[in-house]
């Protein structure tokens, strides 16, 4: 297969970037999208041009490292999937493919297609955990959890932290990411003690980081590789409303 590529090149965080055109030929349809970029890079190296910087690690859709906007969609046209799970057979021969980074102010560009997502780490640090001192845990089966709740918690916990939700959101909001962690822990008895503290801390940190606001377009859940449901955002809104009311009441 043959493709025309338009790829965002940017030297560093401070420099100005722009789209650059490339062409690539003789790509097998079983090549993954990232492997196609590997091939392009090998060609660039051979011709003395610096390869396109892009992030990836596990290449099986679980580590959440890859962060490409392909043809205007976070992680490309095949949902639900991370960019690393995208195969060239999903494109038309001869197609022009646009590749850009995730564009969110809170994810500054490091180089080309590589971004800095430490904002997401800071949101978790603001309360996305259960304070359980190592070694102090009670016997695992001492707290039964209804299967239904455990399953719901797992659905929320499946988030891979890639940030596609914010990248796809017209407002660059990270509500889906944040709500997934809040919901995961709110569904479980272990998460109850810090429930209010957690939602207040994480939501406020999200605002501090400069993410946008949710206007319920549900673009986030449409591109989410882990199929996190936007209903968790509703849950977070509920949790937040209750927690902030309680806080105001001095409880």
């Amino acid at each position: 297969m043959k493709f025309k590529l338009k790829i965002w090149r940017q030297d560093s965080a401070k420099s100005k970037g722009g789209m650059k055109r490339y062409e690539i030929d003789q790509v097998s349809e079983n090549t993954s999208f990232l492997e196609m970029l590997d091939i392009l890079n090998e060609q660039l190296v051979n011709s003395g041009e610096e390869p396109v910087a892009f992030d990836s690690d596990c290449r099986e859709g679980i580590c959440g490292t890859c962060s490409l906007t392909i043809n205007g969609e976070a992680h490309g046209p095949s949902h639900p999937a991370a960019a690393c799970q995208l195969y060239m057979r999903q494109f038309k021969d001869g197609e022009t493919i646009t590749v850009e980074p995730f564009r969110v102010r809170s994810f500054p560009i490091v180089k080309d297609l590589v971004i800095d997502r430490s904002a997401l780490d800071r949101i978790v640090q603001a309360g996305g955990f259960v304070s359980a001192r190592t070694g102090s845990a009670p016997e695992a089966n001492s707290t039964p959890i209804p299967k239904h709740n455990a399953d719901l918690a797992m659905e929320a916990a499946a988030c891979i932290g890639c940030g596609a939700c914010a990248a796809a959101c017209p407002n660059a909001s990270a509500m889906l990411f944040t709500s997934a962690k809040i919901s995961h822990l709110a569904f479980l008895p272990q998460g109850q003690a810090e429930r209010s503290r957690r939602v207040l801390g994480m939501v406020r940190q999200m605002d501090v980081e400069g993410f946008g606001n949710c206007t319920n377009t549900y673009e986030c859940e449409a591109v989410c590789p882990a199929e996190i449901s936007a209903s968790f955002i509703a849950k977070m809104n509920r949790e937040y409303a209750v927690a902030s009311l309680r806080e105001r009441m001095g409880e």
Binding site: T134, S136, P138, T143, P144, P146, H184
Partner: peptide, 18 residues
Amino acid sequence: DQCVAQGVPFAREYGGLL
């Protein structure tokens, strides 16, 4: 025990046990 206390959502039976 430790992981359950941290909120790791292990698979469970209908009775709520692991």
